[in-house]
Simulated scan of single mutants.
Amino acid sequence: MQQVTPIDMMEQKPDREEQVRRIIHVDMDAFYASVEQRDNPELRGKPVAVGGAAARGVVAAASYEARVFGVRSALPSITAKRRCPDLIFVPPRFEVYRAVSAQIHGIFAEHTDLIEPLSLDEAYLDVTDNKQGIAVATEVATRIRARIKEVTGLNASAGISYCKFLAKMASDLNKPNGQAVITPKNGPSFVEGLAVKKFHGVGPATAAKMQRLGILTGADLKAQSLAFLQQHFGKSGAWYYNIARGIDDRPVRPDRERKSVGAEDTFMTDIFELEAARSEISPLVDKVWRHCEAKNLHGRSVTLKVKYTDFQIITRSRTEAAPFGSAAEIVATAHTLLASLFPTAKGIRLLGVTLSSFADDIERGPGDQLQLEI
């Protein structure tokens, strides 16, 4: 059921004097899995997981039929199969997903040039002044979703609001194949009634910390002073202070740069020896370095990610005063970080390397990492 409350009723402003923006967050429904079901009729209506079926495999995406059983992305394949014995695994076809994504972004461009891609299957659009002169943002979203269905055969959901944070939250309200609006009048009260663990950008660790501080809802968050939030959450304190009041002034950035670039790999057998682990670092760094060179990105921070056989995940990071000048320098730093974890009694099932703190970084909202497939 679609909610189609118009967002052209801009007289109710959330204590803001500037022109209220019309922001749409478009999110494809179960994108990878839906592409596979579209291209293979035998998969339609069945629980599908995109990813490896091997014991070391991980689910990259799950169809809605699979999600009913608790199958979700990043879930180990063996666990997914246990939850859903009839689950059908299909290998990912990233070249196809990228081609479909290009079609979708072409549809976005029919309406606005202010497009901020978040991934292959979602993006923010600022349609305040759109190319087709449509006054109501809900109508723009409806047309975009209909056009995506016509061109690709796939369903998309959308959230419409006056800021990026609330547009993102709205896009989840009527999934799949729906859209919802959070108006300027209702934005602050919507945030107040929302559990902080459901806030976009608030991960499990931060949610747990907030809970320990007695912050369970947006209303609890709003009750805290800016000084209190900065004391406990550092630079993010100001962000939490604002979104608790329904305020998010971040622009939609067509030239948005990623805050980090990473690559990771899951191994067929656990690694216990340092030399074996060291040998896996170079391929990861090479992939990250190639991408960064192509995008002219120069990072100062290297982060090593380790997932053990019991699925515990730890990270170790090092930041230098100047950007790394070569892949070899990153490899050496990653090797140093890795050495500090040995000897280990637990096997390592996954290693990842991420480069961040780019030279031209500016402050942005949370969640700007690009993860490369390997």
Rank of each mutant, 00 (worst) to 15 (best):
E17N: 14
V181G: 07
R300Q: 04
P41V: 04
K175W: 01
T128R: 02
R93G: 07
I362M: 14
A195C: 12
E320L: 14
P283H: 06
R98I: 10
M1L: 11
L194Q: 12
A62P: 06
V191R: 01
G57F: 07
T336I: 12
K13V: 12
N242A: 11
D86H: 15
V288W: 02
G57I: 04
R318D: 07
N177C: 06
L43E: 06
R245N: 12
I78Q: 14
V191E: 01
I374T: 14
E280I: 04
Y97S: 05
M9A: 15
D270V: 11
R258A: 13
E273R: 13
T269G: 10
N130Q: 02
K168F: 07
E42K: 14
E150I: 00
R143C: 09
S157K: 03
F165D: 11
A123M: 06
K131F: 06
S279D: 13
A294V: 05
N296Y: 06
N177W: 05
A339M: 09
G262T: 08
I24E: 08
T336K: 11
A109V: 05
Q231P: 00
D172P: 00
A102R: 15
P85V: 02
R349W: 03
I215T: 05
I23P: 03
D255K: 15
R72V: 08
